[in-house]
Amino acid sequence: MTKYILYVEGRSFFHSLDPRAKIAFVVCVFVWSSVFNHPLYTGTVLAAVLAMVLASGVASRLKMFWFGLVSLAVMSLVLWPLFRRGGETVLIQLAGVTFTQESVMYALAVAFRLVAMVLSGLLLLTTSRIEDLELALTKLGMPYSMAFGVSAVFRFIPAMVGDGLTILAAQRARGVNLVKGNVFSRMRNSAAVIVPLFITTMRRFGELPLAIESRGFVPTAKRSYLLDLRFRARDAAFTATVLFLAAFSVYLRLNGYGVVFPHVI
C-alpha cells in the first residue's frame, strides 16, 4: 500500500529544501509556463521541471501518472489547433478546416505548459512528507483545518484504494463484468463498484468528526506542533532565485518575447 503515498525518501537537493521553498518553485513554474505561449519557452520550463524530477530520483514513483500526463498533452495537441484560430502560415486544410503553423505551435506550448504544471505539483508531493507540507501551508497562512484536510485526504487514499480493490473482487465474484457489453451495461456495471465505494466511505468516515474532536481538536483554536520547519539561507537563496526568474519572465512577456499569439495567455 505504500505505493499510494507519493513521498519517496531521498537526500536530493530538492528533497532537502524547506517545503515553503518548494511551494515557491511550484508557483513560479505556474507563472513561467503561463506567461509564455511559445513552445520553445514553455518547453524550456518543462525541461527544467523534468530535470529536477530526474535529479530528485522520484521518476519511478511517477510511473502511474505517465499515461495521464501523455493523455493531457495529446488532448491539448488535438484540441487547441481546432479552437485557437488565426495565424498566417497555413499547414494543411482538412474537411474545410484550416490548420496554421501558429495554432499548432500554440497547442504544443499549452501541452508543455500543462504537463509542466502537473509535474511540478507531483515533484512537490514526491519529495515532501505530507506532514511537513501541512505545516508549511499553515505557516504560509492557510487555516490549519484546511491544511489538516489536505493531509487527511492523503492518509485515506490507501484505505480507499484497498476498499476499492475488495469491492471490485466482490463484484466480479458475482458476475459483474466491467469490460464487456455496450456503453450502458458498462455504466451500470461501474456503478456496482462506485456506489459501494461511496457508501463504504461515507459510513466509515461519518464518525470521523467524533474521532477528531475527541482528540481535542478545535477548528479555530491555536495549537502547537511537534514538527518544526527551518527556512535556512539556502532555502532563501533558492526562493529568491525562482521569484526573480518569475518576475523576469513577466518582464520578457511584456516586451513581446516568448509568444506565438501575443494577445492570449
Binding site: I5, R129, I130, E131, S151, A152, F154, R155, F156, A159, R204, F205, E207, L208, A211, I212, R215, G216, F217, V218, A221, K222, R223, S224, Y225, L226, L227, D228
Partner: peptide, 25 residues
C-alpha cells in the same frame, strides 16, 4: 480503527491531541 487514525505517521497520530492542547514540544 480506520476512522480514528487520520494522521500519516504513528508519532504524529499520538502527538495530535497534545498539539491541540498547545503543549510545549
Amino acid at each position: 480503527y480506520e476512522v480514528q487514525l487520520f494522521r500519516t505517521t504513528v508519532e504524529l497520530e499520538v502527538a495530535f491531541g497534545p498539539e491541540n492542547l498547545q503543549l510545549e514540544r
